[in-house]
Amino acid sequence: MVSYLINGISLGAVYAIIALGYTMVYGIAKMLNFAHGDVIMVGGYMAYCSTSYMGFGPLTSVLFSMLVCTILGIVVEKLAYKPLRGASSLAVLITAIGVSYFLQNAALLIWSSNPKAFPNLFDLPQVQVGDSVVTSVALVTIASCIVIMLALTFFTEKTKMGKAMRAVSEDRGAAALMGINVNSTISVTFAIGSGLAAVAGVLLCSAYPTLMPTTGAMPGIKAFTAAVFGGIGSIPGAMLGGILLGVIEIFAKAYVSTQLSDAIVFAVLIVVLIVKPTGLLGRKLTEKV
């Protein structure tokens, strides 16, 4: 029971880290970046290559992977999304799906479709919690998630750039009138989201150590679900949504059925959206005249 809960929270923490990327990009650029899941996969491959071929240590490989993904995020935004600023949201959405296929197929060309065994980066002993045993990867994941949450909250609440991001997310035109460069704010958002996706990729592959070009697709969709579940655009919402989703998934697997677990997860989402269309922590602004 306790170990299910910890595993659930740990899986949820990965979803939460990915969901943060979705929710920040949605909040600021007002688009759903469906290629976000595939950045996770790229992050996984970067960590895999840097440890297996380049001899990097665990920490350097994580940093390397974050660096590559951050650059990837910025480049994708500049080349694929920026020219569509002001275009219909459908055009942007389709482009994002296109970028997603592009990344998957590029990975297929480079690394082939054979699954790679992800190296064990966190070579730590298992931990005894009460009567049950949990892996150290699960605990590292939860700890990383907490650190990221705190850092992001500090960033958006206290720093000049973070405040500018909140201003851009509310009203782009008004933000530009304050002297805020909206385009570079959007770039920074993509950079942060993609860097986080790299972390999520490493954590995910450490817990489920098979790496394929499609590795990021399903967690990407689930994390998107988590972001909507918690209220898209809201950082605490993404966190809460991710963790709840992970816990529900693991409990559904343990007590109901492994095959049905995804169906149960999405059923819960549907119920939440019927009861509260803005998600758990989402809210609608009312305009005052």
Partner: peptide, 22 residues
């Protein structure tokens, strides 16, 4: 701007700080 367009979710002070962004 027309319609004021203040940043509703930011505090009064944060709104003023945004004005001095540059």
């Amino acid at each position: 701007p027309e319609g004021r367009r203040i940043f509703q979710e930011l505090t009064v002070k944060e709104n003023l700080e945004m004005g001095a962004y540059s």
